[in-house]
């Protein structure tokens, strides 16, 4: 009786361990899938031209120098009134596309120590109000979401110009710089001195009429 119970227990342990171990191997690919949230625009809107738009950031390293990086995949929509004034802005950033010119560091940034991109693949900005602050400048207030944390921020944007694409489509450009504290979004690894808390972001957007 005791021997048969032991055998039963042994079998159950083996099945359980093998289930978990094989589950680790077999199902790993399913976790590779990430959601995408494409930004759609009405015909009168402008969409962000990812090829000619840039988001770069800088962060202090060891209290000594600034390291720079960028996000390579962005999309979004900009809205303008009849006079060409900016009225709204929505930006989606694929956080997985972080690029600091060092592949090992980029992988670490994508992991749970920093951006945890499996759980939080996107960072977004959605304007809630745009105020003209000068002839070519705007204060754009909106909700910025990173790592599931949403903060209201105001970004000063400069209207850098209007033009035509090679295909004749209307273009409008904006640029702005602002600073965030990464700890506000729960990214606290290597604080306070190894990697600084303040992150200065510069966004340069070219939008193209649809």
């Amino acid at each position: 009786m005791h021997a048969s119970r032991s055998r039963l227990l042994t079998g159950a342990i083996a099945i359980s361990a093998l289930t978990l171990a094989s589950g680790l191997a077999i199902a790993s690919t399913s976790a590779q899938r990430t959601s995408t949230s494409a930004v759609t625009a009405a015909s009168s809107d402008y969409v962000i031209d990812a090829v000619h738009s840039t988001i770069i950031f800088r962060i202090k390293h060891m209290d000594a120098s600034y390291s720079y990086g960028r996000f390579n995949k962005i999309d979004g929509v900009a809205n303008y009134d009849a006079a060409g004034g900016l009225t709204g802005l929505k930006i989606n950033v694929d956080v997985d596309s972080v690029d600091t010119a060092n592949s090992a560091r980029d992988e670490h940034l994508r992991n749970p120590d920093f951006f945890n991109t499996k759980q939080f693949p996107k960072a977004t900005f959605k304007s809630s109000g745009v105020k003209k602050s000068g002839d070519h400048t705007y204060d754009v207030t909106g909700e910025f979401t990173l790592m599931g944390v949403t903060k209201t921020i105001t970004v000063a944007l400069e209207h850098t110009g209007n033009g035509k694409s090679m295909q004749g489509a209307d273009l409008a450009g904006f640029e702005g710089t602002f600073t965030l504290k990464r700890s506000d979004f729960g990214i606290t690894k290597y604080l306070p001195t190894a990697i600084g808390d303040g992150v200065r972001l510069t966004i340069s957007l070219e939008t193209i009429k649809q």
């Binding site: 159950a12 978990l20 589950g23 399913s30 959601s35 499996k118």
Partner: peptide, 27 residues
């Protein structure tokens, strides 16, 4: 649960939770 459903299916969630529970207990 944080990855469900966008990166983890319901089947995987239930299966791994059950396996983790059994593994923990039997070990």
């Amino acid at each position: 649960i944080a990855l469900h459903p966008h990166a983890v299916s319901t089947g995987l969630l239930v299966g791994v939770c059950a396996a983790a529970g059994l593994w923990t207990s039997l070990a």
